[in-house]
Amino acid sequence: MVVIVSPVLGLSLRPYTLADQSAVLRLIEADRLPGQPQPTPAMLTEALEGRSSVDAGWWAELERPAVQVAVDGSGTVAGVVSYAVRPKDDTGLLLWLHCREDARTADTLIGHALAELAPRPVHAFHFASALSQGLEALPVRHRPATAQALERAGFTGERLWRYMRADLPAPGLPHLDHVHVGPDPGGKHARRLEARQDGNLVAEAVVGLPVGGIGVLWWISVEPAARGRGLGRAMLGSALDVLTGLGAQEVILYVDDDAPPGDERDRTAANSLYESAGFTEVDRLYSYSL
C-alpha cells in the first residue's frame, strides 16, 4: 500500500519490494565512503532481513526490520529507510537510511520512522549493518543532510569513532618476528594475532577478513608491562602484512577517541601511531538518540 506523505513535497512512502533492489543499491552506493565495499544484492538481502556479521548479537535482539522507500512524482525511488523495534526494552532503532543527501527526503523518511516507532525512545545509527565493513554510526561530514535532519527531528548526536583508512601494502613499518595467527574466537570473519615473550602474551591484534579488497584492523593491544618497547608499532606492521597476504589492497580502522585527554580511554597515542603509519581520517562517526 502506498502512503502519501505530502502533496507539497511530492513524495510517497511504500514498503520496499524486490523491484526496488537496483534503485536502492544505487542510493547506498551514492553514500559509500572511501574504504567501504561496493554494496551487492547479497549485502542488501542480509540488511533487509536484519542480519549482520558485525554486531550480530545486537541484530538478533530486534524484530524483523521494516524497510520503506520514498518515491517522487515520477516514480523514482528517492530514498530508503530501515527501522525496527527491540522488544527487550521496547526501544525503536533507526537502522540505516539513504537519500542522496536530499534534505526533504531525509526529513520525510525520519518523520515516517518516528511515527511508526512512537511513543518509544528511539536510537539512530547505533550499530553496523551488512551494508558496510563495520560502520557503526553516521559519517557526519559525508552525510550532512541526514545529520541535520536528525537534529531537526529532535535527536542528539554523540561522537563515537574516528574512521581512518590507508593503502596496502604499508612499507616501512617494523614487524614482530614470531606472531601466531589463527581464527578469532569472537568472530568467524576475523583473524587474531598473538605475540608472546617467555611464554607470556605481550601484544595482540584482530583483523577482519577482506571484503572487496578492503580489510579491517579491529584493534591492537599491548600488555601494560610490555609497553614502551615499540611493540604496538611492530604489531601494526605485522597485522597489515597479514591483511595484505589475505588479499587486502586497503585497510580501515575505527578509533573510539571520544574520551578527553588524560582519561583511561584516551586514544592520543593510538591516533599518533596510526597517523605516522600512513592512515588518514575519512570522517567522524556519530550515533543519535531521541
Rank of each mutant, 00 (worst) to 15 (best):
R32P: 00
E49M: 10
T280F: 09
P121T: 04
A166P: 00
P183V: 01
S132C: 07
F279N: 06
E264Y: 02
V222C: 07
D283Y: 05
L97K: 07
A269E: 11
I214S: 13
G262S: 06
H142D: 06
P65E: 13
T40P: 00
S276V: 00
A19H: 07
E204R: 11
H98I: 02
E158P: 01
Q197C: 10
R51W: 07
V255H: 13
L131A: 10
W58C: 12
Y163E: 08
G182Q: 14
L217C: 09
G154C: 13
E281V: 13
P183T: 04
A103Q: 12
R229Q: 13
P41W: 07
G79A: 11
A145C: 06
L44M: 04
G92Q: 08
G187T: 00
S287N: 10
R143H: 06
A234H: 08
D257N: 12
G157S: 04
Q197M: 12
L9K: 10
V85G: 06
Q38M: 05
T40G: 06
P15D: 15
M43L: 14
I110P: 02
D107E: 15
N200G: 09
G134P: 00
A78R: 14
S129N: 06
L93D: 13
D263C: 06
G230Y: 00
T244H: 14
D177G: 07
G232Q: 07
H126V: 03
R265K: 14
L109E: 05
S6H: 05
Q21L: 15
L97A: 12
G199E: 06
D89S: 10
A106W: 00
R165M: 15
V179W: 09
T156G: 12
V54H: 03
L160M: 08
E61K: 13
V242E: 14
R229L: 14
Q36R: 02
H126R: 13
R14M: 03
E151N: 03
L114Q: 11
V54F: 08
L44V: 02
V206N: 11
P119C: 14
H112T: 00
P87Y: 05
S53P: 07
Y83A: 10
V282T: 03
A170I: 01
Y274D: 05
M43R: 12
D102Q: 15
S272Y: 05
L27E: 08
V8W: 08
V24W: 03
L62I: 03
A30E: 09
I4R: 15
L240P: 03
D20P: 02
A78T: 04
L285I: 01
I220G: 10
Y254H: 15
L240R: 09
L253Q: 09
E194A: 12
R267Y: 01
S129Q: 02
D184C: 12
A205G: 12
V206K: 04
I220L: 15
A113V: 00
A130H: 02
